[in-house]
């Protein structure tokens, strides 16, 4: 596929714009001096990747991402940030002094991964069709071929739920213990 053919497709314009948005907001997640701003930039990055999934005709996964990640996980994050008393304004102690080394490491990682995928897959194209994947196929796969991972994942969720509640429970102060015994 030549560069001209690639640029001529409107799908690729959408891809380019959304990719730029994702990368910009992701960089702001890791460099923003304010915790709540970082979480909101992550909302934008996740919304952008939901659009990516739609381009790849994975409509169900895109909506799962919006419902679970943005609608629940990020709300949980914001809740946790507010309970650990995020200040409104800038918090200077958010990034340590190892920025250059970390940037070098991540650039090397990017180089290695990109070189690996470019040399392996060259100009292979993605075989998407114009319509989204039928949910029926996903349902058959989850409850057919992948039923054991499905059950294991539900146990993971149960253990995380029970573990989270147990770990975060507040032990009663001695005064409250006294009150509880008196009742």
């Amino acid at each position: 596929m030549t560069v001209d053919a690639w640029i001529a497709e409107p799908v690729n314009w959408v891809f380019s714009i959304v990719a730029v948005v994702i990368l910009f907001t992701a960089v702001r997640v890791v460099t923003s001096p304010n915790v709540v701003h970082a979480a909101l930039y992550l909302v934008a990055a996740l919304a952008g990747s939901a659009v990516m999934f739609l381009l790849l005709s994975a409509e169900f996964v895109a909506l799962v991402l919006v419902l679970v990640y943005i609608g629940a996980v990020l709300v949980l994050f914001l809740f946790g940030i507010m309970i650990t008393r995020a200040p409104t304004g800038f918090d200077e102690g958010l990034s340590n002094d190892r920025k250059l080394v970390s940037a070098a490491i991540s650039l090397v990682l990017l180089g290695v991964l990109s070189w690996a995928s470019l040399s392996a897959f060259g100009t292979d194209t993605v075989n998407t069709v114009g319509s989204p994947t039928a949910t029926e196929i996903l349902g058959d796969a989850i409850l057919g071929r992948f039923v054991i991972p499905f059950e294991v994942v539900s146990f993971i969720l149960l253990s995380a739920l029970i573990g989270g509640i147990t770990v975060a429970r507040r032990d009663l102060t001695p005064l409250e213990e006294e009150e509880r015994k008196a009742v």
Partner: peptide, 8 residues
């Protein structure tokens, strides 16, 4: 839109 986007 099949075969218009690169995998890479």
């Amino acid at each position: 839109v099949g075969s218009l986007m690169l995998l890479n």
